[in-house]
Nucleic acid binder design. Sequence first.
DNA 1: CAAGTTTTTTTACGATCGTTAAATTCACTT
DNA 2: AAGTGAATTTAACGATCGTAAAAAAACTTG
Lengths: 240, 240
Amino acid sequence: MPPMKRPLKKTQPVVNKNKKLHSEDDGCGKKTTRENIINAASIVFSNFPYYAASIRMIGKEAKIDHPLINYYFPTKAALFEEVLRTTIEVYYQANIQWFEGLSALGPEKGFSLYVDRLIDFALNHPKPMRIIALNLVQARQSDIIPGYQLLQQFFLDAMQTFIRSVPVKGADFDIQRLTTNFNTMAINYLGASDYYAGILGMESQSPEYLKWVKDSLTCIILPWLKQLLEDGETDNRGAG
Amino acid sequence: MPPMKRPLKKTQPVVNKNKKLHSEDDGCGKKTTRENIINAASIVFSNFPYYAASIRMIGKEAKIDHPLINYYFPTKAALFEEVLRTTIEVYYQANIQWFEGLSALGPEKGFSLYVDRLIDFALNHPKPMRIIALNLVQARQSDIIPGYQLLQQFFLDAMQTFIRSVPVKGADFDIQRLTTNFNTMAINYLGASDYYAGILGMESQSPEYLKWVKDSLTCIILPWLKQLLEDGETDNRGAG
DNA sequence: CAAGTTTTTTTACGATCGTTAAATTCACTT
DNA sequence: AAGTGAATTTAACGATCGTAAAAAAACTTG
């Protein structure tokens, strides 16, 4: 379990020097301290925006003394970036799977199943969408939030996955618009569900609200998806 | 210019006791210290999320010593709430005006003009939409961000203005969905324009990006608006 | 001008932040 | 069992935060 530190540190452990690291094969449920920290940090960072979250909160969540966090991560920003990276990777891999077996179902059923899978993911893994939603707006050119490039990449990755998974033939411009609009609404309605459900007078995890989200995504996105699919239908439908 | 303080403060000025306050009639360009503070705070709060913004930043922006802020506002939270209230009020009043003279134009031209006015407002007054976008996601039940009720109210007010200004006859449920989707996209694309423009490879204030925003709003919302208008067209079209 | 009040500045307190460094405990080899 | 290096805890530093209190300045009113 070699932690990475920034240079010029006296007690730094000098990673991967000549130790046979056997951390990748543990297999059993035992979690490393590093994973424990990342997990706790993802909880804190999904409930508090970056500057409201603190290292001490994360330490308490992980049931460790907070300076230990600096032993595994040189700075708070580095930890946040790591959480962001992991979070986006989890979402990215899940997103790929949501497209599986959709092409045989046609637009309506395919879209419906995709949204069901998305909502199911958001229910079982609420952290990724919350972290993204919490920090997305602040990700500008200026370095207010660390790792804003990762947040930018999130949308671009989602678009590429869509293009690879769905046999659309429309203009790139239209595909970009479709995926951006879809993901914007998904991140907002599922990542900030407390807010929107509150507006609608619902509970954020209620079937009522989840149905509202699905219906909204469907009625707004599906017509454009069908149009994009029709353009490419004659060429390679059912492929991929 | 009597400031309001929280109780139990020795130096508190005891507001509105027997002073003839003549602050509402000044008319001339001279701004009061209180207005100066609110203006500076709106700048800071539109560029930094609540916990990243500091009283000292606001003092520097207002070119005053920061403790003076506490003379006019008991706490940072109170100042933020005041900024939020003012900001939302400005947006609310502007929103009412954007509907003026639209009913005679028909759905397409009316919607187009409304969006033009909205985008024009966002360009000339970028602070309101940025403040709302920056703090919207964090506005949950818990008191992470002060004044979250105001942020909830923002969407509800916008919906009521829409209902009063446009002769729609659809179900409340559909109207609610339409306005929520519209405002969600508007707040995101205009309040977090740096982020979305970055994704699209554009500049956030470029005509290219603003056209993208308008086209997206139009292609997604307009069909549903037309449908809602058709339902009520036979009854009272052109009214209001 | 003098007295009193309001506004602004100066100074500083207590809390919390991220981070560092030293002390301590733990795991493991010899 | 002793020694060694990694992991963890303890303690603390410097910075910044929001806020309070007192001092100073500016203004109002006799």
